[in-house]
Amino acid sequence: MSSNPPPDPGPASGKAAPQARRAAPTSDLALTACTVGDIPPWGIAAARDLVGTLLDGGRPFPCTFAVAAAKKGGLRFGFVESPHDERTWEPLVGILRSYLDVYQRLGRDTSLVVLFRPEDGERRGPDALDHFFDRFWALLRFLHERDDQPWPGRVPLDPEDPWWEFSFGGTEIFVVCNTPAHVTRHSRHSPGFMVTFQPRWVFEGLEPGTPRGDRSREVIRQRIRRFDGMEPAPQLGNFGDPANREWSQYFLPDTPGGSTPRCPFLARAGARGAPGEAVAVPRGHAQDGDEAMAPHEDAPEPAGSGADGYRVLVNGDLQYSLWPAAAGLPGRWRDTGVSGSREACLAHVARVWTDMRPARFRRPEGAGVA
């Protein structure tokens, strides 16, 4: 136990600032002090239940990083009302920004856990899992579109690149999703939708091939076998390994032989440049094995293009992109008939592409969910 005094729990209004702490937050006062943003009536109870799971010595939780963060007071909590209603997501932008401002002061054992209101009824089965998969990626797109910092230059934009990682505020972040629909893979179950943000900085010194890194991975895999009663998911790999895809670890299937749909994340236009261009375009996503389109901002300027240098294309998933007017059409894409300057084409895409999910993932809100 640290001799440092406990942090100020924040004003009585129910809003607490993120602060360093050196002991496991188990009391309501300590949990309040470890909260970023507003605290809803259900919030502290949800955080208390999570910490209880992480610190349960009789059933060790697989992720030793999360357990260490809970023990040392490095966890920070944020609360959002609903994964199903995007109108409730705006506070998450400020929560994540505030956490990223302080996380390195908390030490390597830290994560931001964002808890959503626990579900009133059970949501189970493949349809429910698909629904939560859609909500999870919609949430990451929501954050990405509101990021006021450029995408890090060292991080690829294509999720199929083994060095890709979700990034926000110029920081690479490993993301984990837990849901009520995960009933077989217990380590990914949560009474309510839950998303954990772990800056990649916390894994420095634990790279594959290092004694600490290899030992940590082996301990985690042993704990998964005991906690889940199954082998670790084949999606779990090593960052940067040619066969690894980080995005596939974010949201795991619920069964040993299960799979998830293809990653739907699309970086916004101008993601590496000055913030403000928030129109998404396909980047590095091949359609049925075809060669992917080049990002529009990297497309070569057609000779003599002038003000009519681009045209708008659309594919079978109702995803849009800009393409040089003088260039031939790439496979699986068709011309919408809209052409003109880059700015005019971007404005058209912004008007018509209001649902960023590929068409095959779209469904009416709540449809097919038990």
Rank of each mutant, 00 (worst) to 15 (best):
P6W: 12
P7K: 01
P7D: 01
D8Y: 14
D8N: 09
P9W: 12
P9C: 01
G10Y: 12
A12R: 15
S13T: 13
S13K: 03
S13W: 02
K15G: 11
A17N: 10
A17H: 13
A20Q: 14
A20V: 14
R22F: 15
P25T: 12
P25R: 08
T26V: 14
S27F: 05
L29I: 11
C34R: 01
T35W: 02
V36C: 10
D38W: 08
D38K: 07
D38M: 05
I39G: 03
P41N: 10
P41D: 15
P41M: 06
G43I: 09
A46C: 04
A46E: 05
R48C: 07
R48V: 09
R48L: 09
G52I: 05
G57D: 13
G57V: 13
G58R: 07
R59C: 07
R59S: 12
F61E: 00
P62C: 00
C63G: 01
T64K: 01
F65C: 01
F65W: 03
A66N: 02
V67W: 00
V67K: 01
A69D: 00
A70R: 03
A70F: 10
A70P: 05
K71A: 04
K72E: 02
G73T: 05
G73H: 10
G73M: 09
L75G: 03
G78K: 01
F79Y: 14
F79D: 09
F79P: 15
S82A: 15
P83K: 06
D85M: 09
D85P: 07
D85I: 06
D85V: 06
E86M: 06
E86V: 10
E86D: 11
R87T: 13
T88Q: 13
T88P: 15
L92A: 13
V93W: 08
G94Q: 14
I95F: 13
I95T: 15
L96M: 13
L96N: 14
L96Q: 10
R97L: 07
R97K: 15
V102F: 14
V102M: 08
Y103L: 07
Y103C: 04
Q104D: 07
Q104L: 05
Q104R: 15
Q104E: 14
L106D: 04
L106E: 06
G107N: 05
